[in-house]
Design a protein around this nucleic acid. Sequence first.
RNA 1: GGGUCUGUAACUCAGCCUGGAUAGAGUGCCAGCCUUCUAAGCUGGAAGUCGCGGGUUCAAAUCCCGUCAGGCCCA
Length: 559
Amino acid sequence: MDFREELIKILKKVIKEEFSGFIEIPPDKNLGDFALPCFFLAKKLKKSPHQIAQELKDKIKLNEAFEKIESVGPYLNFFVNKKYFVKEVLSEILKKKDKYGAQKQRKKVMVESPGPNTNKPLHLGHVRNILLAKGYCGTMRFLGNKVTQVDIINDRGIHIMKSILAYKKFGKNEKPKIKGDHFVGKYYILYNKKLKENPSLEKEAKELLRKWEQDDKETIKIWKLMNSWALKGIRETYKKFNLKIDKTYYESETYQAGKQMVFDGCKKGLFKEDSDGSIYINLDKDLGKKVLLRNDGTSLYITQDLYVARKRFQEYKGLDLCVYVVASEQDYHFKVLFKLLELLKVKGAGKCYHLSYGLVNLPEGKLKSREGTTVDADNLLDEMINLAKRELDKRVKLDKVEKEKRAKEIAISALTFFLLKQDTFKDILFDPNESISFEGDTGPYVQYTYARASSILKKAKLNKKINYNLLEEPIEYGLIKKLSLFGEIVLNSGNNYNPSFLVRYLIELSHTFNEFYHLCNVLKSEKDLMVARLAIVSATKQVLSNGLKILDLKPLEEM
RNA sequence: GGGUCUGUAACUCAGCCUGGAUAGAGUGCCAGCCUUCUAAGCUGGAAGUCGCGGGUUCAAAUCCCGUCAGGCCCA
């Protein structure tokens, strides 16, 4: 039952004006479950809000879903029938289990992430991208959509040539003894180091790119070799993060495409030729002038992206939404891209969305791959796994396999919650000394809460005959209220492209459960009460599990 | 120069879209709680000119205008 809708029905009988938008949740639970501030009626009725609240209180007739109304100053506060509510919520969760909170949206969604470059290993920014995309994909699947995850490999361009050039000059045909992406990345850093001594390297890199574009045999050969090393390493990292890609696009295969679309735009009179021979468009005041094809005829990122977008909507019939998970640096790029799709009336126009996320900065500033001042994804995960192992050693004795498994799950939970808990579009400050924490509002805290719930349920069986009427503690009611919000949270999370809603909810739910845990001893309760409380524990465990799985985290039965 | 995002406790952040009842968390700090369902936990406390200045409103952290500072992008 939707208590809010029920309340609206009741109020409609006594209030003629539109009021549903004014209904709110009181700041304090002692003030009830819903509130209606009466200010909006004051002018029309020419009475004080205070007086209106009092008068309305006497007119309203409640049904079984609500137990009382109070007027406090200008507010009307409504209290739901707790016994009724408790039974409704808990029995629904226990019945629907892993479907609790799910929907049937039935849309076809494509999500692009993480789009690595083949000149360097993945860093913390990519980790944010990967985990964010996972959170979003998981949410959308839970809401009943069909999600296809695609990747685009940035395997061409001047930056790729730089690592190749350094390898050619200084690599002495060395074969990688370390992970391939790290090996290639080493040469990218080396290039930038050597560039400071010898600025002519830049010309050489450009020359190499020209050769590559002209299909120079030797250049293509070494490019293929180094890319294969890099990609092998990158895919190992994907595996560590349990990332699965349904389809991969390669920039080297599409970078020339899209030119025809630009020419078509010219024919339609949308685009114009500049005096220097380049093709451009004047967009609105905010977006300004944008070049679409250089005067030497080579295409730009935007050109190929036009093509790729169209291609996707042609290949995937009935695609409803294409989401690009790309850092906020590219905000402008995507605004232009989507605008152009619209102007060209390309299939898929209006169905694309840029899921923009903030950068991850270190206390000393931006991550810079070319200088090697990044937080490497592999090292970070390994470090966190080791930390988790040390914490486990303090508490339990485990065999090697189990310890490895738990430590990895703890580490990934910690990273997921750390990177997703704040608003997606905001920059994150990563302080290695403080950010890697397993206490407070963290993934391990939520996992720990889940393990606690599991532990109780292992020691006592949930009976089928549950007397919900015995649940009378305020904290029990508070916890059940929190549980009842899950579906709405997931829905908002998906609709707003923002997994942080879900992440913060899971933390809050854990807080509430832990309060309950300390205030109400389950196993020592009198028998019928114990059974009723076991129902709460079981329902909490279920909701935490549903939430963690959406984020592609595996709930830990023990910690 | 233009666009865009951000500015809330010592630190990291919610709350702003959709204005309302004493501005919330976590970390850190102080004081408590393990012979009791896992202390990766719980309770209490100290800590805030909501960047600054105007405006709208019965009511502004929230909406509008201006301004300062920072990030990112474009030229």
